[in-house]
Design a protein around this nucleic acid. Structure first.
Lengths: 150, 150
DNA sequence: GGATATATTCAACCCCGCTTAACTAATCAA
DNA sequence: TTGATTAGTTAAGCGGGGTTGAATATATCC
């Protein structure tokens, strides 16, 4: 087997395992919070980007502005995000997480993290160190390449 | 900083990066295929488990059997899964992916994999090897512990 | 063989999230 | 200034996906 084949195979395997697990946890998170996939998507976006406008939300989700506006409205109602006027362009709105929203979404990320941590428990500290190095490298690379693409 | 702190911090960072990216790609996949979160969840389950009954589906999704039955029905209508009588217990149905369904969901996994592969492109082959080893280890560990919990 | 349990489906109903279309308000440009 | 564009909201309507409750068919138990 060629080295490239090994690489893609390993990644595919890991993606499948990770997705399988994530789906289950994510569904559970949706049920617990009562939030929809799109709503969580919006909150995640805001964690990552700080603040954005309604159109950008719609664009990322691949839905119309109307849909985005409605989704935002529900989240504002739940006090998970704040919607204020953009002082520079008063047509636009600035959307940002409330503390409540931030806490909630970070709990979701924590839950995901905990699973990987639990995997670590059965490994030796050398193995753990290697994985730490690997994941750090992947995160850093992701950040660099994200800057280019987004 | 203690070693444990480093570990949790690294994992949290990676989870956030990965989730952020996954959400976007996943939503895109949903839009392209026209499938809902639950439907994809069911298909993923079948990729993983081979074949199951309707009740198990409902259980995994945390919904009633009626809801699971309806969801299954729609997927059968789309020719993504097959529903046949269980010869051992003729009250039950056996659900399995069609070739069409299998292909579709594997494309989804492929898409997820491709992102990680693209990250690899900018790394040296030593770094790549380390990541391969790390992910292999994680996958294996996940499989082992899954056997215990499920 | 009759009562009970299990697996699934059917029927009626409700809510959410999406779409299109119409509307308001602010900004830009000639 | 006015006409076009841009950001966002609102309204009406549709379909998906959820619920409960009853119906159906098969299995199991005594």
């Amino acid at each position: 087997m060629s080295p490239t084949k090994v690489l893609t195979e390993v990644i595919r395997e890991w993606s499948e395992v990770f997705m399988q697990r994530s789906m289950r946890d994510f569904k559970r998170f949706m049920n617990e919070t009562g939030l929809s996939f799109s709503q969580i998507n919006i909150l995640m976006r805001l964690v990552h980007k700080g603040s954005t406008g309604v159109s950008e939300i719609g664009e990322q989700l691949g839905v119309t502005n109307a849909a985005a506006s409605q989704a935002v409205d529900r989240l504002v109602g739940l006090e998970l995000i704040e919607r204020t006027e953009d002082p520079d362009d008063r047509r636009a709105k600035r959307l940002a997480l409330t503390q409540k929203g931030r806490t909630l979404i970070e709990q979701g990320i924590e839950a995901r993290s905990k699973w990987i941590e639990s995997l670590m428990d059965v490994l030796t500290s050398e193995q753990q160190n290697m994985i730490i190095t690997a994941l750090t490298l992947l995160s850093e690379t992701a950040h660099k390449t994200n800057k280019l693409s987004t």
